[in-house]
Design a protein around this nucleic acid. Sequence first.
DNA 1: TTTTTAATAGACCGATCAGTTTAGGAGGTC
DNA 2: GACCTCCTAAACTGATCGGTCTATTAAAAA
Lengths: 187, 187
Amino acid sequence: MVRTVFEKPDAIALVAEVFRELGYEGASMSKITARTKLSKGSLYHFFPGGKEQMAAEIMAHIDAWFVTEMFEPLEGEKPRAAIARMWETTDSYFRSGRRVCLIGAFALDETRDRFSAAIRGYFHRWIEALAGALLKAGLSGTKARALAEEAVIGIQGALTLARALGDETIFGRSLARLKQRLETALD
Amino acid sequence: MVRTVFEKPDAIALVAEVFRELGYEGASMSKITARTKLSKGSLYHFFPGGKEQMAAEIMAHIDAWFVTEMFEPLEGEKPRAAIARMWETTDSYFRSGRRVCLIGAFALDETRDRFSAAIRGYFHRWIEALAGALLKAGLSGTKARALAEEAVIGIQGALTLARALGDETIFGRSLARLKQRLETALD
DNA sequence: TTTTTAATAGACCGATCAGTTTAGGAGGTC
DNA sequence: GACCTCCTAAACTGATCGGTCTATTAAAAA
């Protein structure tokens, strides 16, 4: 019998993409097994708490990635460099608009109520970290916060529109515009 | 036997709210009957094509409403008045950020693939109508289009963030900012 | 009053749902 | 080789899924 052995981090990454594409409710266990090639037994072995545990761990994993790759740099001692890098990280992570934000998608239906703290925490920290970097880079508190909020809103909106219209260039244009907006404000 | 009689438009409106709150996949027929008080028999009487027909008719209904209340005025002879009214209409329709955009939510998972033309059509027309109004109000074609796209992206992003953070004021702030942005560009 | 029409109720159907369970496979340790 | 551990496979379970269908109700039409 030929079989592939997965480790849990592999499982997390694979299942994450299924949730991202199908949403929480649309991602039945059958669809998850079919798309990941992990069996039901394996999935429950790694995630004894079931589907909800999968989603929670995936979100924690995504959050941790953002903390390392984006939030902590923004909270660090080189705000301008971190802000510049944020755009690259954002473009890369969302595959230039071809990949939706799983946490944002979970926010839109009642899935939000299962994971409200995680969802809120992720977006709150993103805005706070960016606002903090803008503040350190020289903007007033009010201006920093408004721009941070505008940037994260623009990113989420661009992901939705890019997907709705089947046009990835929308995401690229929006990132460039938002980046320019922040740079102009910092000059 | 006491029973309530609904007409189809009532059914459309009620079912729409279930889809809006639960998404397409999360809105099982049982949940729809429980939340609308329409029986399964009634639902299939009005929508013999089943769940997919419901969603399609709901989307068509929403689109028709936007055409009447927003897109056609934007396409009409008083662009500035129509743009000003668009903000009020948007705030009102989305209940100041308390109500998600059903069509936007459907765009984020594979529900999009069932209704791609309707989803694309709705956002495309919104952007085109707004860009046309901005053009007629005096902006260059390039500027008009970029601002229209920015506005619709900002609205969708603000809806997502307001819901994710459980903070409706985000939506109000974003509308005010976008409105100001367009007015500044028109001066 | 009787008939027709539109809407409602809810039992029923086969398929699928999330989760449970048992058996087995493969590598590592002793 | 025997035992242990981790992972995999897939049958099974009761509940729920979307859809079908029959009977009923109430209002409108004849």
